[in-house]
Design a protein around this nucleic acid. Structure first.
Length: 563
RNA sequence: UGGGGGUUCGCCAAGUGGUAAGGCACCGGGUUUUGGUCCCGGCAUUCAGGGGUUCGAAUCCCUUACCCCCAGCCA
């Protein structure tokens, strides 16, 4: 392991114990079973990748980064009715963005001819037959977990007849659903997946890659393991729900006599206050509960990217939560911790006032002046930027209280605060309108307290961010909160959408920022001092500068107030 | 009630017969021109429960409980 990788490990520790897959691989390598390994990331192109997939990606690609070998990207595109090229493109973009490179880009559909040949092999060995039963009939004959199923009346067709029928299925002679090809295993098998599983079905549908060449398509169980085998995948890693499939996976490989890939399962990662099911995410998109797959509130990779998450932070997250076989519900706070940690190191500091309150510095007689402030106190080489200061500035309305509680370090009548990178000011007078609303503050400043050359000897507890009124630019801020009100929307009564958080998006149109923000770039990450981490949103236009809040800063004051 | 998988701190997660790592969260304290960062300290006599084997058990055996998955021509 390189020093660089070590540094990235959770807690900055140099050691992390092996997860169960790494243990298996080290054993395989040590015993000489394999000299190098091959893994694959096998998404179905029927939706966008989400944070749960990130775990799988980091796992599969991470393993071949750590051990000799490589990883393929393979699209499991065996069901043409739900799959689209748009999804293929987004998946490739997301994997690349996360920082991984696949050795080969493959599609299960690349193997349709081979798979078809395998099916014929099975028929010839009398291990598969064409069944005319309807899906209802088949379900009825399937039995239940506690009762064995019964044989289909079509189970004993001759090999010749099966070959003929299967050929005619392929030729398009039969309508959808009228026939299937089933493996002939055992209708009384204790594992329901072994009760003559369907391996080919008829679908007269246009496929995103093979077009109209096929009207029969292999089922997952007859495509996935075989594709693994064709690619000589050594460790085929999938989620726990496929554990019962492993028996069938092994059976097919054995009957076909093909390369013996092996399947290993781990528990998918669940995160609270969101959903990670492509079906549910698709629903949120099509029913417009969000603006799209890349809505910054979505747990999709594209949503997280637009929100301002970095690939580094997502990889760190996957690393920290680990891999195991037990059910889990990871606190979204861990994800937030990971971005904060990364962004703290790289974000440029800027000042933005969200809810401006005008402050007039009554004794500031001089010309406007240019002050300087560090771009990032965490980065000694980050340089400084210029900030104009003048007689009239804005501060956050929240940063002033007429009647201040104990331990309130911000501005209050007669109280002093430091203006970040500028001067110490003292609140002298509160100006109100006819209704009693505070419209502005009159303050005085201490000329000797200039940041960097302070000879005033005055020590203040509070430091406020501010923006010079004259040179401020107006900004739109989009603040995001958790998408759902409850930890596990799927576990609640009724429809999961009833638990959407109505306050997941808050748009602030009153914000004003320092002029340096006029040159904000899409790839830059910012920390708006005392506010949080932000990035430019793609909706930004020449007339509107829009920032997304990636995550807030930790708020010790809010915590203090709760006591 | 069949089969399979699982149960270690609020949430993740090490541990593989020698006497409970680590991270997040939380709670104290220090530094600080971000109530941020950073630093220091605290946080499971106990491993779902009960028996047993052993000098010694989270780890081995027995047993009970609970959770999840499997009856799509989805993946």
């Amino acid at each position: 392991m390189s020093e660089e990788v070590k540094k990235d490990l959770p807690g900055g520790t140099s050691e992390r114990s092996l997860n169960f897959l790494e243990e298996i691989i080290e054993e395989d390598l040590k015993s000489g079973r394999y000299k190098s390994i091959v893994t694959r990331f096998p998404p179905e192109p029927n939706g966008y990748l989400h944070i749960g997939h990130a775990s799988s990606i980091c796992l599969n690609f991470g393993l071949t980064k750590k051990y000799p070998g490589y990883t393929n990207l393979r699209f499991d595109d065996t069901n043409p009715v739900t799959e689209e090229t748009e999804y293929v493109d987004s998946i490739k973009e997301d994997v690349k963005w996360l920082g991984f490179e696949w050795k080969n880009e493959r599609y299960a559909s690349d193997y349709f001819d081979t798979l078809h040949g395998y099916a014929i092999q099975l028929i010839e060995k009398d291990l598969a037959y064409v069944d005319d039963s309807t899906s209802d009939e088949m379900a009825a004959m399937k039995g239940t977990p506690t009762e064995p199923g019964s044989n289909s009346p079509y189970r004993n067709r001759s090999i010749t007849e099966n070959l003929d029928l299967f050929a005619r299925m392929k030729a398009g002679e039969f309508p959808d659903g009228s026939k299937t090809l089933r493996a002939k295993i055992d209708m009384g098998h204790i594992n329901m997946l072994m009760r003559d599983p369907v391996i080919y079905r008829i679908k007269h549908a246009h496929h995103h890659r093979t077009g109209d060449k096929w009207c029969i398509y292999p089922m997952y169980d007859f495509a996935h393991g075989q594709s693994d085998s064709i690619e000589e995948i050594t460790h085929s890693i999938c989620t726990m729900e496929f554990v019962p499939h492993r028996e069938l996976y092994d059976w097919l490989i054995e009957q076909l006599g093909i390369y013996p890939s092996r399947q290993y399962e781990f528990a998918r990662r669940n995160i609270n206050f969101t959903v990670t099911s492509k079906r549910k995410l698709l629903q949120l998109v099509t029913e417009k509960h969000v603006t799209g797959w890349d809505d910054p509130r979505m747990p999709t990779i594209s949503g997280l990217r637009r929100r301002g998450y970095t690939p580094e932070s997502i990889r760190d997250f996957c690393d920290r939560i680990g891999v195991a076989k037990r059910e889990n519900m990871v606190d979204v706070g861990v994800l937030e911790f990971c971005v904060r940690e990364h962004l703290n190191k790289i974000a440029l500091r800027r000042m933005v006032v969200f809810d401006p309150l005008k402050v007039v510095i009554t004794n500031y007689a001089g010309e406007d002046e240019i002050l300087h402030s560090e771009n990032n106190p965490e980065d000694p080489n980050g340089g400084v930027r210029e900030i104009p200061f003048s007689k009239e500035i804005y501060i956050e309305r929240d940063d002033f209280m007429e009647v201040a509680p104990k331990k309130y370090f911000r501005l209050a009548p007669g109280q002093m605060v430091r203006l970040k990178s500028a001067y110490i000011i003292k609140c002298e007078e509160v100006i109100k309108d006819a209704e009693g609303n505070i419209t502005e503050l009159h303050c005085t400043y201490i000329p000797e307290s200039k940041s960097g050359s302070d000879t005033s000897g005055i020590n203040v507890k509070g430091t406020l961010h501010w923006v010079s009124l004259k040179s401020s630019i107006s900004l739109e801020i989009r603040e995001y909160d958790r998408l759902f009100k409850v930890e596990d929307p799927t576990d609640e009564e009724g429809d999961f959408k009833e638990y959407l958080n109505p306050a997941s998006l808050k748009v602030i149109t009153t914000a004003v920022g320092e002029p340096a923000l006029a040159n904000a770039k899409f790839d830059d990450r910012y920390q708006f001092i005392r506010k949080g981490y932000f990035c430019l949103d793609k909706d930004t236009s020449s007339s509107r500068i829009i920032f997304n809040r990636t995550v807030t800063l930790k708020d010790g004051w809010a915590k203090e107030q709760k006591k």
